[in-house]
């Protein structure tokens, strides 16, 4: 029904607009109320999630964002220096987003002070369950343990390195390993 027809058939277009506006206004008010009740909790959960991810790869007392320039191929979204209680640097933590086999993967990478990987933690991925999703597993003995201790030049065995890929999930394994290398390169470039 286009506006011209509306005007001809129902002269009370003002009434229609008023009713629609009233319903929308009431809905918006109710939403505002619910938002007020829940937003603090949602924000707290988000902070908690990042803290858990960071602590999972590299335990430290504080994480300070690094603003200096570093080599970034576009996948590192946040690089932070991990410090202990006295302020000495114990390593680095990087939040990364890169493309896997079935979409974007969000992963946290930890490096110790010697720029060796301390672990990875996949926070968000839509990889194939049973294959690429194995990279997200955190139980002891999971695939991600293969990347602990990796230093500059880490690559899959297929690509000339030493890391075994997840069988049937080469793309995901390669992407994760490449990302660890990217973070090592970035931290090395900080000097």
């Amino acid at each position: 029904m286009d506006a011209l027809e509306k005007k001809k058939n129902s002269p009370n277009i003002a009434k229609l607009a008023l009713v629609l506006f009233a319903v929308t206004a009431i809905t918006a008010l109710v939403l505002g109320l619910v938002n007020g009740v829940t937003k603090d909790r949602i924000a707290a959960l988000a902070v908690e999630k990042t803290k858990t991810a960071y602590a999972n790869v590299l335990k430290a007392d504080s994480y300070a964002k690094i603003d200096d320039a570093y080599t970034n191929d576009g996948t590192i979204t946040k690089l932070s220096a991990a410090k202990d209680a006295s302020g000495t640097a114990v390593g680095y933590v990087a939040e990364t987003t890169f493309s896997g086999a079935q979409g974007m993967v969000t992963m946290v990478v930890g490096l110790n002070a010697d720029k060796a990987c301390t672990g990875i933690y996949v926070t968000k991925s839509s990889e194939t369950s049973g294959l690429g999703a194995k990279a997200s597993e955190t139980s002891p003995g999971a695939w991600r343990d293969n990347l602990v201790g990796a230093t500059d030049g880490v690559a899959l065995a297929k690509d000339g390195g030493t890391v075994e890929a997840i069988s049937g999930a080469t793309i995901t394994s390669r992407a994760c390993t490449k990302e660890v290398q990217t973070v090592i390169t970035a931290v090395s470039s900080l000097g």
């Binding site: 629609l20 319903v23 809905t27 109710v30 619910v34 938002n35 829940t38 937003k39 909790r41 949602i42």
Partner: peptide
């Protein structure tokens, strides 16, 4: 239009509650 507004309202409420709890 009114149906859609009411439904969107309830969906957002449930969405916010799920995100929080």
């Amino acid at each position: 239009a009114i149906f859609v507004v009411v439904i969107a309202g309830f969906v957002t409420i449930v969405d916010l509650l799920l995100q929080a709890f």
